[in-house]
Design a protein around this nucleic acid. Structure first.
Lengths: 131, 131
DNA sequence: TATCTGTTATATATAATATATAACAGATAT
DNA sequence: ATATCTGTTATATATTATATATAACAGATA
């Protein structure tokens, strides 16, 4: 999987990594059982520090997206490792509320907002295998 | 309008301020022409620094949500000051893509995701006046 | 004139982020 | 066994973002 770091972004590198890996899973580029490069390899590839990669992996591990097998490396989990729980729902509602508020303030149509949301979701759904 | 700062949040204070004011406009609590407290008053009310408030106001001003009349204070703009432009659309797509990806990865249903999005948007729509 | 605005400047403190080096323990291949 | 690859942990440092503190300025108002 190809990851791109934007060093000019206001988003921290480890957040960019985490986000792109989740999007990779959603897009079906990363499937259950697929390996991720070691922290050292990934760091070397991207020209960043080992600990920055490790930080991203730690968050992904906490959220159940990956499992770390010592020596086997990092492996993508099945869907069963990463369910919708209360904490996640609360976070999603909060984040979506901010986006909906700004969209509404800027005069965006309800249909348009709904379409963008569903199109993005559907796109992932069509790209990745069922689980 | 009642603003609440979470000093334990991972979100910076000025981002919390900016977000809550935008949500206040979307919810109709803040209407066109309504004044906001001066940077010093707001800072005093919330127990934070004047410059932190000023930073939030500066971003809101840049995005057209408020206008600063020297001496009159800070005033909420009409919708015409804050339209959907290319930069905003790009940002919205990027943010929504992250959220949609994680929701899909966690096994959320397409209907459920759509419903949350539309419910939040509709809620703002029902609370605030037409513009 | 006194007092309220937003704004700007400067300095400092704190926290988050990223890097650098090193070491450890488990696993694998030679 | 030894070398080499894992993730992990520890420590230290540099950089940047965030927040605060103080002060001053210029416009507006009472």
């Amino acid at each position: 999987m190809i990851l791109k770091i934007d060093f000019e972004s206001d988003l921290p590198i480890y957040i960019q990594l985490k986000t792109q890996i989740i999007e990779g899973i959603a897009a079906g580029v990363l499937k259950e059982g697929d390996p991720l490069p070691s922290v050292r390899q990934m760091a070397s590839d991207l020209g960043i520090n080992l600990h920055t990669v490790n930080k991203a992996y730690t968050f992904l591990k906490q959220d159940g997206f990956i499992t770390v097998h010592r020596q086997k490396g990092v492996v993508i989990n099945s869907i069963h490792g990463r369910r919708v729980n209360e904490d996640y729902l609360a976070r999603l509602h909060k984040d979506l509320s901010s986006l909906a508020a700004e969209a509404y303030c800027r005069g965006m149509n309800e249909e348009e907002f709904k379409n963008i949301c569903t199109e993005l979701f559907t796109k992932f759904k069509s790209q990745s295998p069922k689980w």
